[in-house]
Amino acid sequence: MLQLLTPSGDVLGEPPLSVDLTRRLYRAMVYVRTFDRKCAALQKQGRLATYAPFEGQEAAQVGSAAPLDPEDWMVASYRDAAAMWMQGYPWELLIAWRTGDERGGRPPEHVSVLPPSITVGGHMLHAVGLAWSARHFGEERIAITYFGDGATSEGDFHEAMNLAAVYGLGVVFFCQNNQYAISMPRTAQTRSETIAEKAIAYGMPGVQVDGNDLFAVFTATAEAIDRARAGDGPTLIEAVTYRLGPHTTSDDPSRYREESEVEQWRRRDPLERVRIFLSERDAWTPEWQERLETEASTEIERAVELAEGMDGLGPARIFEAMFDELPPHLVDQRAEALRSVGQ
C-alpha cells in the first residue's frame, strides 16, 4: 500500500507536493469537511431529504480530483460531493440536489461532472463511454469514476473494467474502500486480498494507496491520469479509507461496528496529518485554521440559502425534461396535473 505521509505527519521520501499546493488542498479539505458536517446537521433538522456523509474520506476525494484538468469528465456517486466540488460543481447545486430539487443535477455549462448516480455501480460504464467520446472527437480529456468497495461486487464493475481495458480507454477507476457497504464489511464483500488486485484480471494496473494520505492519493491518481491522457489505458486505484459517519442519515452503524474501530480510524484523520506537515514547515497557524473555518462556514451558509431559496419544480416543470420536445401525451398529462392543483 502506497503511503507517503504517515498519520503522525512524517513524509516518507521527498514531499510530492509543494507547500503551497499542500496548503491549497488542506484548505479544500477544511471546506469539504465543513460542507459535510453542515449537511449532516441540516438533515437532522429535516432540511435535506437524506444525506450520505463522507467524513474521513476527504483526502481520498480532494487528493484524487486535484490533479484533473478542468475539462476532464467525472462520474461519481452520491457520497462524492467533495470530489465533485473540486471539479467545479457549485455548493448550492450539491445542496439543492440533497434538498430534493432536480435542478441540483444540472451543473453549469463548463462543468463536466455528471449528476450523481444513486444506483450502485452502473455509472462506471458511463465514464468508459465518455472516455471513448473524448477519443472519438480527438479531445485530451480523460474520465474518472468514483465508487465504493461495495460497488466492486456489481456486474457493471466487471463490465466497465473489462470494456475500458479491451478498448484501451482513458479511464481512472477510483475506488474509495471505506470498509463498509452499509453494514457489509469489506472482508465479506470479496475474497480478494485487495480490491486493487482485481485489476490484474482485466489487464490493467491496480494500485492500493492509503486513502487518508493526501500525498499518496494525489501521486497515484496523477500517474493514472497521465497514463490515461497519454493513451495508455485505464487504471484501478483502491484508496483505503474509512467512513467515520453512518452510511446515510437513516443508518445506525452501531448495529454493525464497534466504536473502538471508529476511534482507531479517527486517529488516522486525513486532515490532521497534513496539518502537522504544514505546521512543521511554518505553513499552518491556529489563526489561519480559524479563518479557513469561518470562510468555509460563510460560503456554505450562503449556498444553503441559495439552495433553500429554490422553490421546487412545481406541477408543470416535472414534465419539461422528459424529452427534448414535450410529446402530446405529456402535454395532456401536464394540463391534467395543473388542473388537479387548480392552475
Partner: peptide
C-alpha cells in the same frame, strides 16, 4: 463488443452524453 449487454448500453450511454450518436 465483448458479450456484455449492460456494458454495451452503459458505455454507449457515456458516448452519447459525450456527444456521439451510438
Amino acid at each position: 463488443t465483448p458479450v456484455a449487454e449492460s456494458g454495451i448500453v452503459g458505455m454507449a450511454f457515456g458516448m452519447a452524453v459525450g456527444g456521439m450518436r451510438p
